[in-house]
Amino acid sequence: MITYPFLDKGATIGVTAPSSGVSVGLHNLLKQACDRLEQRGYGVAVGETAWTQEKAKSAPAIKRAKELQDMMENDQISLIFPPWGGELFIELLANLDFSKFENKWILGYSDTSLLLFVVTLKRGIATAHGTNLIDLRGEFSDDTTAMWEKVLSTKAGSSIVQYSSAAYQKEWQHDKPSPCVFHLNEQTEWKSIAAGQAPVKVEGRLLGGCIDVIRHVIGTPYGDVRHFQENVIQNEPILWYLENCELSTADLRRSLVQMKLAGWFANCSGILFGRSPANTPVDGYTAEDVYQELSEELQVPIIYDVDCGHVPPQITFINGTYAEVEVADGKGVVTQHFKP
Rank of each mutant, 00 (worst) to 15 (best):
E296I: 13
P313G: 13
G274C: 09
A287S: 14
F228Q: 04
F228A: 07
S248G: 12
E288G: 09
H227I: 05
I214D: 13
S255I: 03
V257H: 13
A262Q: 12
K260N: 10
C308E: 00
A266G: 06
A262I: 01
V325A: 04
I302H: 03
G223N: 06
D251C: 06
S276P: 03
F317G: 00
V327S: 08
Q234W: 04
D224G: 03
V290K: 03
S269L: 01
D307G: 07
L256R: 05
A287H: 10
G223L: 05
E288T: 14
E326S: 13
I233Y: 02
H227V: 06
V327P: 02
F228M: 12
T249H: 04
A323N: 04
G263I: 00
L294D: 07
K260I: 03
V306R: 02
R215S: 15
S295C: 14
I238P: 08
A323L: 08
S295A: 15
D289H: 12
S269T: 01
N319P: 04
T280L: 05
D251T: 09
T280Q: 03
A266Q: 01
Y285K: 03
Y291Q: 04
L239H: 05
I318E: 03
T280F: 05
Y291C: 04
V300D: 11
E293S: 11
R275N: 06
Q229C: 00
G219M: 10
L294T: 15
P237M: 09
W240N: 01
V311I: 15
R215Y: 07
R253P: 00
D307A: 14
R275V: 08
E326N: 07
Q229N: 04
